[in-house]
Computed example of a mutant assay.
Amino acid sequence: MHLFFMAAFSWMLVEGLLLWSKVVSVNLCEDRHMKYYYLIGWGLPALIVTITLASAAGNYSADGHCWLSVQNGVIWGFAGPNVTKLLCRIFIITLIYEAAVKAVLVLLPILGLTWLCGVLVPFSVVIAYIFSLLNSLQSVFFVFLFSILFCSI
C-alpha cells in the first residue's frame, strides 16, 4: 500500500511536469523524457519504500491497523516525500497559472491538492472524513466540470 500510494503521488508529479511541458515549455519533446518520467513514477517510490523498510526494520507497521507507524516516525517515510511532491506541484501550478488559468483550475484535483489534508489525517477524525470525501468525489467533480460547467462556457 505504501508503494502504490507513493507511486500515485509520483505520477501526479509527472502529470504536473507534463502539463508544464505542454503549457510553458512547448518545445520539449516528451518522448525523449519518458524514461525519466517512468523513473520518477515508479523508481522514486520504490527507492523511498526500500529506504523506509530498511531503516524501520521491525517497526514498519503500526499497532492496531495496517499502515505506517506514527509512534516511531515511520510515517515520515510517506508524508515527507509526498509533502515535497505537493510543494513541487504547487510550484508547477504557479508557473503554469500565468499561462493558462482555465487549465490549471480544471487540473488542480488531478495534481493532488486534495491530499494536502491527507497529511493531517492522523491528527483528526474530521480531517480524515474530509480527505476521504474530497478524494472520492474527484471523478464526480470532473464529470460536473467537463460535461456541465465547461460545456456552457
Score class of each variant (00 low, 15 high):
N72M: 07
V143C: 06
L53C: 06
L105K: 14
E30F: 03
L120D: 06
F123M: 06
G16R: 00
N72I: 01
F144V: 00
L86T: 09
D63C: 03
I93R: 00
L113A: 04
K22S: 10
L113D: 02
L87G: 09
A79L: 13
V14E: 09
L3N: 13
I48V: 13
A62L: 05
L44T: 03
T94Y: 15
K102M: 08
C117A: 07
G118S: 09
A46S: 12
G77V: 07
T114I: 12
I130Y: 11
T84W: 15
F141V: 00
F144K: 01
P45D: 03
E30S: 14
L3Q: 13
C151W: 09
L19T: 04
V106F: 03
E15W: 14
Y60G: 05
P45T: 02
C29Y: 13
M12E: 11
A7Q: 14
S55A: 11
V49K: 11
I96K: 00
G41M: 06
F142E: 00
Y37Q: 04
F131C: 08
L3A: 10
H65V: 09
N135D: 13
L105Y: 14
W11T: 05
E98G: 09
N27H: 09
A62S: 13
A56E: 04
M6E: 10
H33S: 09
F9G: 06
I148S: 10
F123W: 12
S139C: 04
N59H: 15
F146C: 05
P122W: 02
F131T: 07
L39C: 05
W67K: 06
I93M: 02
S10Y: 06
I127C: 03
A57N: 13
L3P: 11
V24A: 01
V140N: 11
I51S: 10
C88E: 05
V24M: 03
K85Q: 15
L145G: 01
L86W: 10
L87W: 14
S10Q: 01
V119G: 04
S61W: 15
N72Y: 07
I92L: 00
V49C: 11
L120P: 01
C88F: 12
S25D: 08
V23I: 12
W42N: 10
Y129E: 14
V104S: 00
A46C: 03
H2W: 15
G73K: 03
S21M: 08
A7G: 11
E15G: 05
L44E: 12
G73A: 02
V23C: 04
K85W: 15
Y60R: 05
A8N: 12
A7M: 15
C66A: 13
T84Q: 12
V26K: 07
G80L: 02
T94C: 13
V49H: 07
L39H: 03
L95M: 06
H33K: 14
V106E: 11
C66E: 06
V14D: 04
K85R: 15
V104N: 02
L68T: 05
I90P: 02
S132C: 15
I93H: 00
V23S: 08
I48P: 11
